[in-house]
């Protein structure tokens, strides 16, 4: 098995929900770590989960798959999940995968907390 690289994930707690901000590329080497961090956050049962992608310059399909899995878990727990502040190149991956209409996507953390 490949040795997974750890991803830096910053977590901010707001009254309206929990904001998770991964930092750096999310590719096959970091997706397992990202998945683990998201599962820990989902286990807390937040009222709303916002994933701030402003510091993710690159994401491949393993990162997208991690977010799809997160969405499925959030839906089962009735936790609203919002992606926000996507960089153009990352957004294009969601568009190619035709997942841009599956997720709720906001322009900023502020709007995501209200979405």
């Amino acid at each position: 098995m490949a040795e997974a690289e750890q991803i830096e994930v910053q977590i901010n707690r707001h009254p309206a929900g929990l904001v998770v901000r991964p930092v750096g590329d999310v590719d096959l080497s970091r997706s397992p770590s990202f998945r683990g961090e998201l599962k820990k956050v989902l286990d807390e049962g937040p009222g709303r989960l916002v994933i701030d992608l402003s510091s993710v310059p690159y994401m491949d399909s393993s990162g997208v798959a991690t977010l799809v899995e997160c969405l499925q878990i959030a839906r089962r727990g009735s936790i609203p999940l919002v992606l926000c502040a996507m960089q153009t190149k990352v957004r294009s991956v969601f568009e190619i995968a035709r997942l841009d209409s599956v997720f709720t996507i906001s322009e900023s953390v502020e709007t995501a907390l209200e979405a």
Partner: peptide
Amino acid sequence: LDEVRPGGLGVHI
């Protein structure tokens, strides 16, 4: 692609 599930997107991309 109508099936929303993790994985299997690489070839499509």
